[in-house]
Amino acid sequence: MSKYLLNKFLFTVDRDPELVERYREDPRELVTWWESTVANSLLNCHSGEASTWLEFTPAERDALIERDHVRLFEMGAHPFLTLTLFIAVFERDNTEPLEYQKAYGAALSGFSLPYPDIAT
């Protein structure tokens, strides 16, 4: 399991409106594409350098495809990264102010200290 790779996915997708839309429309396609093209590029590095070994575990891939922020949190994904990306993906579907944020918090309310380790 790579918390770094999970967080890198959440971070990079959230910062690109086109990727957010692709994740909203077809999460399986976006996760598969991202893992094969972006996962091994170095974050914030524009020199063409890349690694060759990073890939999601099946559980990580499934949680990203299912957009399951509770499972991602259990795996160590940073809650602020899941929250900001999933606000971009889901908030427009809600009719009440802060409806998605409240549902997000309620879904995580069963966790107590110590929380899963989110350090990468």
Rank of each mutant, 00 (worst) to 15 (best):
T52M: 06
E29V: 02
R67A: 11
M75A: 10
S47G: 08
H69Y: 14
S47N: 09
T82L: 02
S112I: 08
D93P: 00
F111S: 00
K102T: 07
S47V: 03
L5D: 01
E25T: 13
P27I: 03
I87G: 00
P97R: 11
A63C: 10
L42Q: 11
F111V: 03
A39C: 05
T95W: 02
E99G: 04
G105A: 12
F11R: 08
L98Y: 12
P97A: 05
L85W: 06
R71P: 01
I87H: 07
L83D: 02
L64S: 09
V13Y: 06
Y115H: 13
L5M: 04
S112Y: 07
F80C: 05
H78E: 14
T120Q: 07
A119H: 08
E96R: 10
P97G: 05
T95V: 06
L83H: 13
A77P: 08
P114C: 05
L85K: 03
V13W: 02
D26N: 15
A59W: 07
P58V: 11
Y4N: 06
T120G: 06
L54Y: 14
Y4S: 09
N40A: 05
E99Y: 01
D62G: 02
E21P: 00
A119D: 12
S36N: 15
I65W: 12
E55Y: 10
A50T: 15
W53L: 12
Y104G: 00
D117R: 12
L83S: 07
E96C: 00
R61N: 11
